[in-house]
Amino acid sequence: MADLNENTLKLTVKWNGKEFDIPEFSPSDSVAMLKIAIENATGVRPERQKLLNVKFQGKVASDNFTLSELNLKPNLKIMMMGSLEEAIEGAMMKPDVGDEVVNDLEFEEEEVDVVNQEIYLAKIKKRVKDYKLNVFNEPRPGKKLLVLDIDYTLFDHRSVAETGYELMRPYLHEFLTSAYEQYDIVIWSATGMKWIEEKMRLLGVSTHSDYKIMFYLDYLAMITVHTAKYGTIDVKPLGVIWASIHNTVLRILLC
């Protein structure tokens, strides 16, 4: 059984003549999560990033590799090339973490290696300890909690549209207004918090008068898991919410 006390990695990204400290990572976290952390620090989207010295056997490491597989040295300075998007509206038309979306609700328990289940529980425990919820609106008595993704749910990022209104799902505000009658609402996206806040502003979600969002969750509340069917993937463990918000949680992904 793997050691639950994984050593964390402190990394720095050097880009555009500046250095950016990246939050501590577990060796079992993926390159995809590292890229999202770099996006949060620099604003450079993952698909624009070229990490020059993050390699596996001399080749550029793909997103599904874990940091432990790459044997990264502590306090490594990652050399990055990449360009910022000209406008955030342009960034909204692209997916958060690639074109393929995996619904983590589809995984059956036996697909996860039993030997490693304690590691995942330890990861969730660490997220609960380290992740700070910024609650905008307190839970209402008697209301359950509805957790919504952004891509494929609140807006269609594959659209050729250029504005938040055009990207918005049909009847989005009517749906959220109706849901708010019975549920408190949380938004959880696999991207940085500043992008979540900007998308919710452009869609008019954060300022709508007929419903309120309880809080946002970003990629820092996610964990990396290994499955026989999908390999290494990043998922959103609802246990992070359960530890702080004790009403029943329902998470949906609309296609």
Rank of each mutant, 00 (worst) to 15 (best):
residue 90 G to L: 05
residue 154 L to T: 11
residue 252 I to N: 11
residue 100 E to W: 03
residue 63 D to K: 14
residue 236 K to Q: 04
residue 158 R to A: 13
residue 74 P to A: 08
residue 14 K to M: 00
residue 161 A to R: 06
residue 85 E to L: 11
residue 101 V to T: 06
residue 63 D to R: 10
residue 48 R to T: 03
residue 206 S to H: 08
residue 131 Y to S: 06
residue 23 P to Q: 06
residue 70 L to I: 04
residue 2 A to G: 05
residue 243 A to H: 05
residue 8 T to S: 10
residue 184 D to S: 03
residue 195 W to R: 15
residue 53 N to S: 06
residue 52 L to N: 09
residue 146 L to Q: 00
residue 205 V to F: 10
residue 186 V to E: 02
residue 33 M to I: 15
residue 165 Y to Q: 11
residue 88 I to A: 04
residue 78 I to A: 08
residue 73 K to H: 10
residue 81 M to W: 01
residue 170 P to K: 10
residue 161 A to V: 09
residue 35 K to L: 06
residue 29 D to Q: 15
residue 42 T to Q: 03
residue 239 G to T: 08
residue 188 W to L: 01
residue 152 Y to C: 03
residue 84 L to W: 10
residue 249 V to R: 01
residue 141 P to A: 13
residue 3 D to V: 11
residue 181 E to W: 09
residue 224 T to K: 13
residue 103 N to I: 08
residue 236 K to W: 04
residue 34 L to G: 15
residue 79 M to V: 08
residue 84 L to M: 15
residue 251 R to L: 04
residue 1 M to N: 12
residue 164 G to E: 00
residue 249 V to L: 01
residue 204 G to W: 03
residue 190 A to W: 00
residue 242 W to C: 05
residue 102 V to M: 01
residue 168 M to D: 09
residue 59 K to N: 14
residue 216 Y to T: 14
residue 2 A to Q: 13
residue 190 A to L: 04
residue 64 N to A: 11
residue 92 M to K: 02
residue 237 P to N: 08
residue 250 L to P: 00
residue 238 L to T: 12
residue 19 E to Q: 14
residue 79 M to I: 15
residue 80 M to D: 00
residue 236 K to D: 02
residue 50 K to Q: 13
residue 129 K to W: 02
residue 56 F to A: 14
residue 138 E to M: 07
residue 241 I to Y: 03
residue 30 S to Q: 04
residue 115 V to F: 06
residue 32 A to S: 13
residue 13 V to L: 08
residue 214 M to F: 08
residue 249 V to I: 12
residue 163 T to G: 11
residue 130 D to F: 07
residue 254 L to N: 06
residue 139 P to F: 10
residue 113 D to C: 13
residue 158 R to C: 13
residue 232 T to G: 05
residue 207 T to N: 15
residue 229 K to C: 01
residue 132 K to N: 13
residue 125 K to A: 15
residue 11 L to Q: 04
residue 15 W to N: 02
residue 124 I to A: 08
residue 236 K to V: 02
residue 224 T to N: 15
residue 216 Y to N: 15
residue 151 D to M: 09
residue 71 N to E: 12
residue 218 D to N: 12
residue 181 E to K: 14
residue 249 V to T: 04
residue 108 E to T: 09
residue 80 M to T: 05
residue 80 M to E: 01
residue 215 F to V: 10
residue 230 Y to N: 13
residue 211 Y to N: 14
residue 17 G to F: 12
residue 43 G to M: 07
residue 145 L to T: 09
residue 136 F to V: 12
residue 181 E to N: 07
residue 247 N to L: 01
residue 28 S to E: 10
residue 55 K to P: 02
residue 125 K to G: 14
residue 240 V to F: 09
residue 176 L to N: 05
residue 187 I to Q: 02
residue 29 D to F: 12
residue 15 W to G: 05
residue 10 K to V: 10
residue 138 E to R: 10
residue 186 V to Q: 03
residue 70 L to E: 06
residue 96 D to F: 14
residue 35 K to A: 09
residue 80 M to W: 03
residue 80 M to Y: 03
residue 218 D to E: 13
residue 128 V to I: 15
residue 146 L to G: 03
residue 254 L to R: 11
residue 158 R to M: 05
residue 152 Y to V: 02
residue 172 L to W: 02
residue 10 K to Y: 11
residue 138 E to Y: 06
residue 223 I to W: 09
residue 253 L to D: 01
residue 91 A to V: 00
residue 156 D to T: 04
residue 178 S to K: 12
residue 77 K to A: 10
residue 99 D to W: 14
residue 196 I to A: 03
residue 110 E to M: 03
residue 216 Y to F: 12
residue 244 S to G: 14
